[in-house]
Design a protein around this nucleic acid. Structure first.
Length: 399
DNA sequence: CGTCCACAGGAATGACGGGCGG
DNA sequence: CCGCCCGTCATTCCTGTGGACG
């Protein structure tokens, strides 16, 4: 019986001819061509090109909303540059650090050392010592080295611009090698946070990536889909729908590609031989759900309690709550679980964090002489909260 | 027009756990 | 192994503030 159903399963999988190569739709895939980014590719390449002569290129600052191709263009140009220079026997390398996940000075430097195969422990050293080792490793290696700091605004907002400052002056400490910094940010007002010296040296060259519009997203999707899917499996409305949905999300190409890929996966699961518009709609719900549940699951306990507090308030039809009210509910919950509540100051920070993650909306509002507070409301469907917390009995007991 | 609420959010400081050099 | 220094999380104390009310 089981054997028969497995046979059936395997033959179904074999018959399902949706994806030719789904890797092409993954967000970290670097395509051979970047439609509608020719100008940016050319500009960036011309700024970085001196590296193939062994000269130090200018530092570059790249602006653009998420999914506007900043990372793809940067990696693409660097990849080509490294290939070209190795043909010429010139040493060019780069380190790519996403500062959203490495948002302390120490972790950034640790990542940079990693890229040079000079690994350092993830804690225990002073930042100054970590930096010293990085400089040493660099100079022993020689050549030109690009430091790509993606989402660099996250680093500066959390930990200041000290590392950035050091990196822009690092060439004075190097004898055999050169460093150029490529800063990437989606925050257009970001430079306001920077020290003037850092601003001017990092901004030697600036590059702006406008968001894609729906038509451009369609081109990108068609380009990739032609290699990712078998011919004819996409219903004609699928690509325009993905493009339109992503265009609403400030023209996010990553979102568009995710939608297309997940829609394909859903079609495959449902054993459909075509990807239909309804699969795209399902994909959109699934992507959002997965993202939220994943974030909720990995949150620290007190942030979870905060979410549950907001959830309980919402159940009572109270959607827009001031910080003080949430805090009261949260304190009750903590005590019910026998936990010492965190202070309001700390909760204030947690609220900011959750806001940045998009789990809640928090907006500073002045209610005149009735004070100034943040109005918070929860952004997560009830079902997702249960999904995320269902493996913790303590949390379930208060839900 | 000044007051004053209810917090926001900065600064200083402490507790904790981890790696380092000796 | 020990004492030391570090990053991180959390607390304490603090100053700042938009705008309705009087």
């Amino acid at each position: 019986m089981a054997g028969a159903s497995l046979d059936e399963l395997f033959s179904r999988v074999l018959r399902a001819r949706i994806f030719q190569n789904r890797e092409i739709l993954r967000p970290d895939y670097i395509p051979d061509s970047l439609p509608h980014r020719e100008r940016q590719v050319y500009k960036l390449a011309s700024v970085l090109a001196p590296a193939i002569k062994g000269a130090r290129p200018s530092n570059v600052f790249i602006y653009g909303v998420t999914g506007s191709g900043k990372t793809a263009v940067t990696k693409y140009v660097l990849k080509r540059l490294v290939e070209e220079s190795s043909k010429l026997g010139i040493l060019v390398g780069y380190a790519y650090v996403n500062c959203k996940y490495n948002d302390t000075n120490y972790r950034v430097i640790a990542e940079l050392c990693d890229a040079l195969n000079a690994s350092i422990p993830f804690t225990g050293l002073s930042t100054a010592e970590a930096y010293r080792r990085f400089v040493k490793a660099l100079d022993e290696r020689g050549g030109t080295f690009f430091v790509v700091l993606d989402e660099v605004d996250a680093l500066v907002k959390k930990s200041g611009d000290e590392t950035l400052y050091k990196l822009t002056r690092i060439n004075m400490e190097l004898y055999n090698s050169r460093v150029a910094v490529i800063g990437i940010t989606n925050d257009l007002k970001f430079t306001e946070y920077l020290d003037a010296r850092v601003r001017s040296s990092l901004g030697e060259e600036e590059l702006v990536f406008p968001p894609y519009n729906a038509a451009e997203l369609e081109d990108i999707l068609r380009d990739r889909a032609s290699k990712a899917f078998y011919p004819g499996v996409l219903d004609q409305g699928v690509i325009p729908l993905c493009a339109a949905l992503a265009a609403k999300e400030h023209g996010d190409a990553r979102r568009a590609l995710d939608l297309l890929r997940v829609a394909g996966e859903i079609a495959e699961r449902e054993e459909s031989n075509k990807v239909l518009e309804e699969h795209v709609k399902k994909a959109q719900r699934e992507i959002e759900r997965d993202r939220v549940v994943e974030v909720l699951k990995t949150m620290p306990l007190h942030s979870k309690l905060l979410i549950i507090s907001l959830h309980l308030l919402r159940k009572k039809d109270i959607n827009k709550v001031a910080t003080g009210e949430v805090y009261n509910v949260y304190c009750d919950l903590s005590k019910k679980l026998g936990l010492e509540p965190l202070t309001q100051r700390r909760i204030s920070d947690l609220i900011s964090e959750l806001d940045m993650l998009g789990i809640i909306n928090a907006k500073v509002v002045s209610k005149g002489r009735y004070g100034r507070t943040r109005i918070v409301n929860l952004n997560v469907p009830e079902k997702n909260i249960y999904d995320a917390f269902s493996n913790d009995e303590r949390l379930l007991s208060i839900l």
